[in-house]
Design a protein around this nucleic acid. Sequence first.
DNA 1: AACGAACCCAACCGCAGCTCC
DNA 2: GGGAGCTGCGGTTGGGTTCGT
Length: 320
Amino acid sequence: MRNPASASTSKTPCCTKVGLKRGPWTPEEDELLANYVKREGEGRWRTLPKRAGLLRCGKSCRLRWMNYLRPSVKRGQIAPDEEDLILRLHRLLGNRWSLIAGRIPGRTDNEIKNYWNTHLSKKLISQGIDPRTHKPLNPKPNPSPDVNAPVSKSIPNANPNPSSSRVGEIGSNHEVKEIESNENHKEPPNLDQYHSPLAADSNENWQSADGLVTGLQSTHGTSNDDEDDIGFCNDDTFSSFLNSLINEDVFGNHNHHHQQQQQQQLQQLQQPSNVIAPLPHPAISVQATFSSSPRTVWEPAALTSTSAPLVHDQKDSMSP
DNA sequence: AACGAACCCAACCGCAGCTCC
DNA sequence: GGGAGCTGCGGTTGGGTTCGT
């Protein structure tokens, strides 16, 4: 990793350091950016502002495009189906917002993160469920959770163990690395050690976490020819699992590929229309974080207006 | 009506991973 | 192999809006 105090910082000066504009975007800036990206395509964000005639830093441009200007970005309220999907995916993935967003067409990671922090975490808390672990807040047969406890603004970030904000959840990079590392050893890790959202819990109407784990593991135990190549949480396996999750059919619909194939697929994914592949195996769009693959991932999820949106396909009830 | 508290969400920041040279 | 540069992710902030008193 680079030392932020040295090269990196000076190489990528932030807006303030070079006197670039910050804060809310004006319609004129939006238009400049949108027109430029439509004309030239995404990428090369660092130099884009200059080329597009914007007094913004590249990061800011990218964020604005990704979260707001992209034609495929869906606006409006999160539908109940989407909410349910977010809950289930979060339970599985933790705070991997981009992965979650990659499974929900038209929604951005930022939007989902915000929605989680402002709505869902509170909702879970009010149900006595720890939004981080998806376990009961008070495991002991205690007086019911304090539903009336004030849910302060800080709740989203309220972490029983603040110093571990990036360490204490399955979604953390460290843990993903561990999983990947285990993958190399071809030994299924015990997910419980990550006190993961997969851990069993109670009063939820979505699938039992034990079932999820079992399902995931059984994916390996029972599946096909490519077995040797499959680590736990192998990209495709994981992706399959996510699809199954979405389909609410954890044990069905498995299909494994070699990682090499995945790489190829990922390259193909540079074509947006491929990103969320149509069922039966939409798989691919979740790969980035769980693999060493180049990132492509989530962008396309939003570009699926022409492909079958998973939520629609599977649940057939998400209304516009 | 006025004020403060709470909420919401767009945007920013720092870090980490990847690619290229 | 290692450093430089770029991109993307997740956490956090802060300003505008809504709600409650």
